[in-house]
Design a binder for these strands. Structure first.
Lengths: 166, 166
DNA sequence: ATCATGTTTCAATCCTTTCTGAACGTACTA
DNA sequence: TAGTACGTTCAGAAAGGATTGAAACATGAT
């Protein structure tokens, strides 16, 4: 049985995941793996969190693609086991990178097109508003690029050091 | 008819809205209002964006609740008209504030409960991971609080200066 | 080769969110 | 008073996502 705090954390993490675009099952599983010192297997995940094996399998796969959990093997056991990525920043960065490229960059591009090609009047309220917005976006972009640059470097280091391999 | 750039911006903004939890219609309407120098009315919104009057009415109401658009009246006209909030930062802040309080704060609380009450072993990998995560969250929290503090002040200023009222 | 064990896939189902459109309310006009 | 213009609401329809469960697949042991 799981402690009060553990379930609370799992459910909260689940809600939070929904917020940033990871579905509830995936986020709950992620929390569960994070909370386990020892590697966990598919059946344990499905059983403890009360979700289907199919769903658990797909979610674990996706979490691996995000690089936030890793598959490990235990000798003498045929099952796959999973452990959480020890670098907790990694998950947040991963999500930020994908999000930025998929959602933010196109919006910034559309905004710039608008400013250069839509023939807005320079003095108008719309122009001022859009120009302000573009400035905000650019600033955010610069901050992100800097952060992601650091992450890319540190991720390479981490891969070299930990040697986690599926 | 709308220019290429305008529609592109509207649709992109629509997708982006989905990302941060505003639904597509609302975000599209918001973009449309932002792009119009002159106040727009409900029927124009519904007609141009090809959504039902019911949806447009509800979305405009919600956007007003967020404070990102305002209702204005034009003398001699019975219709309600809408204009965009001129402070473009406001929308981003509004969303950030609500999001933070609704989603982030509970997660941080659950994390802290976990660290203090779940009896995790100090030396364990789980403890280290969770402690790191808590540090990251706290840092983010401090940054947000600072930013939101500034926003609160600037918002009061803005209200005094602009005098927009529904 | 067959069984036992474990994993993956995907069509069907379920659930949640969003959207529509008709009905209603209100206020103005003739 | 009836008619018109406009805004709002909400039950149900539609769309979109998440989840299940069973079948297919893979691998190792006997």
């Amino acid at each position: 049985m799981m402690s009060e705090e553990h379930s609370l954390f799992i459910e909260t993490w689940g809600s939070m995941g929904v917020l940033w675009g990871i579905n509830r099952s995936m986020a709950r599983i992620h929390a569960f793996v994070m909370l386990n010192e020892d590697p966990v297997d598919l059946d344990t995940v499905a059983g403890e969190l009360d979700i289907s094996r199919g769903n658990a399998s797909m979610s674990l796969k996706e979490l691996r693609n995000w690089g936030v959990i890793h598959r490990v093997h235990i000798s003498g056991d045929r099952r796959d086991f999973y452990v959480a990525e020890p670098d907790t920043w990694r998950m947040l960065f991963k999500i930020a990178i994908v999000r930025k490229e998929r959602e933010f960059n196109p919006a910034m591009q559309a905004l710039r097109d608008l400013l250069t090609n839509a023939g807005l009047e320079k003095g108008s309220g719309v122009y001022t508003r859009m120009n302000d917005l573009e400035k905000s976006f650019s600033k955010f972009d610069r901050i992100m690029k800097k952060a992601l640059g650091n992450e890319r470097r540190s991720r390479m280091m981490l891969d070299l050091l930990t040697g986690f391999r599926d």
